[in-house]
Every structure is written in structure tokens, then in C-alpha cells.
Computed example of a mutant assay.
Amino acid sequence: MRIRSDSLNAQITKNVKINYLLSFPEGYGEDEEVKWGLIIFLHGMNMRGEDVTKLKSYGIFGIGQGLSLPFVIAVPQCPSESYWNMERDAVMALVTELTTNHRIDSSRIYLIGYSMGGYGAWDLAINYPETFAAIVPLSSGGQVSKAEQLKDTPIWAFHGALDDIVPVDQMSKMIRTVEQYSSNIKLTIYPDLGHDIMESTLNNQELYTWLLEQRRLT
């Protein structure tokens, strides 16, 4: 028997599919020269499935009236029994699709994620550090060992001090680690809230004003 070592270098094609909702800001399309920021919102675990319509009044689409949201907003749905890190290729394909076919400013692509979606936001930004202008993870933690990948990514994180599903220490540890490499980081901890902090966070106009200030340098 003769045993030899060898290597394979081949290009493969992967088919991906993901359902999503899409909204456009007031004034979109009126001026062909204007490009808009894009928010990708990643939902939590209990909204997984194959019926994307149940996301119409959830999360960023369920916020109160009167806020100024000058963004194109996309809300993909994670399939049943899957997780956002498993749908990484599908989400990135969606970003490519939207920036190619709509008036999106590719230097202003933002990630907001809640709970499982917060973990997804950390994961995507770590694996694609040159794509996102800022991330906003809620009620989650990240991969501490890969925190250096976020050195150029502005972050505003949110967590409830009384969270009994994802302990606040998970978020605090991730933030402390990223702070070793970056200074554009903020952490808001709600002292009287638990895991569900979406309403308090997404109804805050200051968050969207901050996002508008963030731009990926190209």
C-alpha cells in the first residue's frame, strides 16, 4: 500500500434561500442620486419559521410612530431549527442582493439583532468585518476569542441587568474584550429590565441618530 499526501483547491457553488421583509423610507426613489443606509434586523429564536409575515409587527417593524427612520430596512427570517450563524451565507447574499438592486449606500450597512439575533449580529460582524458600518446587539453575548476582528466596527450594545436568559455578564465580558482593540463602543444596561428590551431600545430616536453618524471607511 502506498500512501501519499495531496490537496484539493476547487470552487464550489452553494444555493441559499431566505425569506425577508423589506421597507423603504419616505422619499425613497424621489432623487436617483440619493443613496440610503441599510438596516438588517435579526430576530430572536421564537420567530424562526417559514411564515415571514409574522415579522410585520415585530421588532423594528413594531416600534412606535413618530420616529425618524431614514433607512431601507430588511428583516430576514431564520428557518425553523436553524440559527443565524448557520444562515451566515444567506444573510450576506441578501446584503449583496439589496445593495445591487436598490439605492443603498454600501458604506452605511448596519446590523441590529435581538437575543439569538444579537448573537447573529456579533457573528456576522466578526466574520465580515469590512461590511458593516456599525452593529447593535441586544440581550446577547459574542465570541470573545475573536473580538479583535471588531476593532474597526462601531458598537452600541444593550442588555437588561435582570436578564435571566442571557446573563448580563456575557455582554459585559464581550464589551470589555472588544474595548482592548477599539474605543467606539457603548454599552447601555437597563437596571430594571430583563431579557426583553426591544421596546425600550428600538423606540429610542438617539439610536438611529447614532447609526446615521457611523460610516464604513472604504
Rank of each mutant, 00 (worst) to 15 (best):
Y190W: 02
Q170P: 00
P191F: 10
Y114G: 04
S115W: 09
R176E: 15
P137I: 07
W122G: 00
T13Y: 05
K54V: 14
C78L: 09
D164W: 01
V91I: 15
L21G: 03
L138T: 01
A133E: 10
M47Q: 14
T13G: 05
A93M: 09
K173I: 11
W210E: 04
N85W: 14
G64Y: 05
N19V: 00
V168Q: 00
G117P: 04
A93T: 11
M171L: 03
V178Y: 02
K151M: 10
Y190S: 01
I60R: 04
S139R: 01
E50K: 06
S106L: 06
A90V: 09
T177R: 03
L22C: 09
R216N: 13
P137K: 01
Y28C: 03
N19G: 12
T13F: 09
I39D: 08
Y28L: 02
L202D: 10
I197R: 01
P79D: 11
V72R: 01
A157I: 10
L187T: 05
I104F: 05
S107V: 00
V144T: 06
K186S: 13
I135G: 02
P79C: 12
L150N: 04
G66Q: 05
G29E: 11
I175W: 04
L111Q: 11
L187P: 06
W210K: 01
A121M: 03
A157S: 14
L111W: 09
L124N: 00
A147Q: 02
I73C: 07
K14N: 11
D169K: 03
N101D: 13
E130T: 14
R2V: 12
D105G: 03
F132H: 02
R103Y: 05
